[in-house]
Nucleic acid binder design. Structure first.
Length: 664
DNA sequence: GTAGGGTTAG
C-alpha cells in the first residue's frame, strides 16, 4: 500500500544533474555593461532577442526599481560580489526579465566572481533569479556548479520547481537535501514545497501528499510558524479541503496578518465569499492591519459578485491602510471596477498606477475587450510595447478576445496568423479556441470545424459547445445535430448541450423536435441551470428568477414592467418570439418572454432608483435575444444608461443602442 | 548594495 509518510522520509538519490554549462571567457571589456558574446549564459528555447531589444529590456526593467536603475553605475564603480547579489535580489523581485538577469550573470562570470572560492551567496542569488523567472532548469544548472550549498540554496531550487508546476522534482529535492548536504528543512522549505502541491491538481494523491508534508511540518516543530501555516492553508484550499484549512488556521499563531490573508484567499478559492468577508471583519476586530494581499482577495470577491458599493468601501479602506503601491493589488482593483461594469473607473485605476506590469496591461486589455472597446485595447497594446514591456501569451489572447467580442474577424485572424512571427509567441490551445469561437460566432461554421480538425490539440467539450451555440445562432441544424449527438455521448448529463439543441429546433419552428429534446432531458433526469439576474441597490443585492414573484414589492415591479413594455412597444419594440422555447400559441409565447429575469431586474431598478441613474444588472447566463432588444428600447424610453453583465461579457445600452452592436 | 516564506490577470 502506498504510504506517503514513508515515501517522503525515504532517502532517494539526487535527481540526475543537467549537463554542466560551459561558461567561456569572453572578450567583453571589464567596465562595460553590455552582454558578452556567445551563449555563455543559460537561455530558454525562445526566439533570440535582438541587441536593440536587449537594450530596451534592461532600460525599462531598471526603471521599475531604484536598485536596478543604479545597476550600470554600480557595476562600473564598485563591482563586488555583494553588489551583484543585491542586484540579483532586485532583479528577482517583480516582473523578472530573463535577459536582464542573463546580462548580470554574464558580468559576474566575466569578473570571475563565480570562479573558485566561496561564492555560495552570489550563486544562490543567481539561482533564485532563474527560479523567479520560472526557469527551474536554468536554476538547476547554477545549482550543479556550486561547490557548497546551504538551506537557502536548496529552498530556492525547490521553490523554482514547485512554482513551475514540477511537483515531483521539487519533492525529490526535498527528500535529498538532508542526506546530500546535511541541510535540514526549515521554515522556508515548507512554503517553497507546498506552493507547488495544491497547484498541481491533476496529479494523483494530492490530498495524501499534502497530508504527508503536513506531518513533516509537525515533526519539524514548525506547525506554529505563520508562513508555514499560511502555505498549508493555501495548499488545503487548492485541494478544496476546507475542514483541513480551518484546522490549520485554528492551530497557528493567528496574530500574524499573513495567516489571515491566506485564510481569506482560501475562502475565495473555495467559493465561500461570505465567509471570506466575515474573516476580514474578524481580522479588523482583532486590530490586525490588512496588507495588500487581503485587499486583492476582497477586490476579487466584490468583482466576481458585482458588488460595486462594497468594492468602493473596500477601496476606500485600502487607501487609508496601504501607503506603498503594489502591482497585484492595483491590478485586482482595476479588475474589480471592470467586473462591476465601471470601465471608466478601471481606466482611472490603470492610468494612476505607477507600478504597471505586464499583468496590468493584460487586465486592462481584457477589460476593454469585455466592454466592447477594441480600439482602445489595440491602442493600449501599442502603448505596452512602446513602454518596453514584452507582451506574453495572455496579452495576445486578451487582444484576440477583444476582436472576437467586437466581431472584428479580419483583425482577429490577422493577429492569430502573425503572432508567432511578429511577437514570437506560439498559439496555445486557448488561442485556437478563441479563433474557432470567432469563426463560428460570425457564421463561418464550416471554417471553424476545419480549424478544430487541423489544430495541434484535441478539442475539449467546452469548445464543441461553443460551436453548437453558434449553430443555434445561425440556424445550422444539420451541423448542430451532429455536434450535439457527439456531445451527448461524451457528457450525457451536461444540460447546456440539450438546451442548445432544443433552442436550434425552437428557433427554426421545429417544435416537435424541440419537445423531443426536452423530454429526453427529463427522461434522463437532467435539470438545466436556472436563469437569475441581480441588481444592487445601496447595501442590498436583489435577485430575480424567471416569472419570479417572491420580491416584497413584486406587484409594483410587475405593474412597472407592464407599463414599460407598453412604452417600448409604442416606440417600435416587437417581441421576438423565436426566443421562446415552448410550442405554445403566439400570445402565450410572448407572455413567456415578458417576465424574464433580466426584464424584472430592470423594472425593479427603474422603480427603486432616481430617474436618469445608470442601472447595473448581472445575469448568470447569456442574455436572451429578446431581452437584449427590449433593453435597447428601455434605454431609449427611460433615458437611462444600462450596464448588463452576462456570463460572457458586458453590454452597455444607451439611447436605443448597445455597445456590442448586436454582435454577441 | 551580499541570497530564501503566504496571494493577484486568463
Amino acid at each position: 500500500m502506498f504510504c506517503p509518510l514513508v515515501w517522503l522520509c525515504s532517502a532517494g538519490s539526487l535527481p540526475s544533474p543537467m549537463p554542466p554549462i560551459i561558461l567561456p571567457p569572453t572578450p567583453c571589456a571589464a567596465n562595460s555593461t553590455s552582454l558578452p558574446a556567445g551563449d555563455a549564459i543559460p537561455h530558454r528555447n525562445r526566439k533570440p532577442t535582438t541587441r536593440r531589444q536587449r537594450c530596451r529590456i534592461s532600460v525599462t526593467t531598471a526603471s521599475s526599481s531604484s536598485a536596478l536603475s543604479a545597476a550600470p553605475a554600480l557595476i562600473a564603480n564598485a563591482p563586488t560580489p555583494r553588489a551583484f547579489s543585491a542586484l540579483f535580489k532586485a532583479a528577482s523581485s517583480s516582473s523578472p526579465s530573463h535577459s536582464l538577469g542573463a546580462q548580470l550573470h554574464a558580468q559576474a562570470v566575466v569578473r570571475g566572481f563565480l570562479g573558485d572560492g566561496d561564492n555560495t551567496i552570489l550563486s544562490t542569488a543567481i539561482l533564485n533569479f532563474y527560479a523567479s523567472c520560472r526557469e527551474p532548469d536554468l536554476a538547476r544548472q547554477v545549482f550543479d556548479r556550486m561547490a557548497r550549498r546551504n538551506a537557502v540554496t536548496w529552498n530556492a531550487l525547490i521553490k523554482g520547481y514547485a512554482q513551475a508546476g514540477r511537483r515531483d522534482e521539487a519533492l525529490a529535492l526535498f527528500r535529498c537535501m538532508r542526506r546530500h548536504d546535511r541541510v535540514a528543512p526549515d521554515k522556508y522549505t515548507f512554503p517553497a514545497l507546498l506552493s507547488g502541491i495544491g497547484r498541481n491538481r491533476g496529479g494523483v494523491c494530492v490530498q495524501e501528499l499534502g497530508g504527508a508534508v503536513h506531518a513533516q511540518v509537525v515533526k519539524s516543530g514548525l506547525d506554529k510558524d505563520p508562513f508555514v501555516g499560511a502555505s498549508l492553508v493555501s495548499m488545503y484550499a487548492a485541494t478544496g479541503a476546507l475542514e483541513d484549512v480551518k484546522a490549520v488556521f485554528d492551530d497557528v499563531d493567528t496574530l500574524d496578518p499573513v495567516v489571515w490573508s491566506s485564510m481569506i484567499s482560501a475562502y475565495v478559492n473555495c467559493k465561500e465569499e461570505e465567509a471570506a468577508l466575515l474573516t476580514f471583519y474578524k481580522m479588523l476586530c482583532q486590530d490586525i492591519k490588512p496588507r495588500q494581499f487581503v485587499y486583492s482577495s476582497l477586490f476579487a470577491i466584490c468583482g466576481s459578485m458585482s458588488m460595486l458599493e462594497m468594492g468602493r468601501q473596500v477601496h476606500a479602506h485600502s487607501l487609508k491602510n496601504i501607503t506603498d503601491k503594489d502591482a497585484a493589488m492595483t491590478n485586482a482593483l482595476l479588475t474589480m471596477y471592470s467586473d462591476c461594469g465601471c470601465i471608466d473607473d478601471a481606466w482611472r485605476v490603470f492610468n494612476s498606477n505607477d507600478v504597471v506590469d505586464v499583468i496590468s496591461y493584460n487586465s486592462m486589455i481584457l477589460a476593454l475587450g469585455q466592454h466592447a472597446r477594441p480600439k482602445e485595447a489595440v491602442e493600449l497594446f501599442k502603448r505596452m510595447k512602446f513602454s518596453g514591456l514584452i507582451p506574453d501569451e495572455v496579452t495576445l489572447l486578451n487582444l484576440l478576445s477583444a476582436f472576437n467580442h467586437a466581431g472584428l474577424i479580419h483583425e482577429g485572424l490577422h493577429l492569430f496568423d502573425s503572432m508567432l512571427d511578429m511577437e514570437g509567441i506560439k498559439p496555445t490551445y486557448q488561442h485556437y479556441a478563441c479563433v474557432i469561437d470567432m469563426l463560428a460566432r460570425s457564421g463561418e461554421i464550416e471554417e471553424s470545424m476545419k480549424t478544430i480538425k487541423e489544430m495541434p490539440f484535441e478539442a475539449e467539450t467546452s469548445l464543441w459547445r461553443i460551436v453548437l451555440g453558434a449553430c443555434s445562432k445561425h440556424g445550422d441544424i444539420e451541423t448542430g445535430i451532429k455536434i450535439a449527438e457527439m456531445l451527448f455521448e461524451m457528457e450525457p448529463y451536461e444540460p447546456t448541450n440539450y438546451i442548445l439543441l432544443g433552442n436550434i429546433c425552437a428557433r427554426l419552428g421545429r417544435w416537435t423536435e424541440a419537445e423531443k429534446v426536452r423530454s429526453l432531458m427529463e427522461k434522463r433526469g437532467i435539470d438545466g441551470d436556472d436563469a437569475f439576474s441581480w441588481i444592487e441597490m445601496g447595501q442590498t443585492t436583489h435577485r430575480f428568477g424567471v416569472d419570479d414573484r417572491s420580491h416584497p414589492i413584486s406587484e409594483e415591479i410587475y405593474r412597472n414592467l407592464d407599463r414599460l413594455i407598453g412604452s417600448i412597444k409604442a416606440a417600435g419594440y416587437v417581441p421576438d418570439t423565436s426566443f421562446a422555447t415552448h410550442s405554445t400559441e403566439k400570445d402565450r409565447r410572448e407572455e413567456s418572454l415578458r417576465y424574464h429575469c433580466e426584464k424584472l431586474a430592470f423594472a425593479f431598478g427603474d422603480l427603486a432608483s432616481p430617474s436618469g441613474d445608470t442601472l447595473r444588472i448581472m445575469k448568470n447566463l447569456r442574455v436572451c435575444g429578446d431581452c437584449h432588444s427590449a433593453y435597447k428600447y428601455f434605454s431609449l424610453v427611460t433615458g437611462r444608461k444600462i450596464v448588463l453583465r452576462d456570463n460572457h461579457r458586458f453590454h452597455h445600452f444607451y439611447n436605443g443602442a448597445c455597445s456590442c452592436v448586436d454582435y454577441w
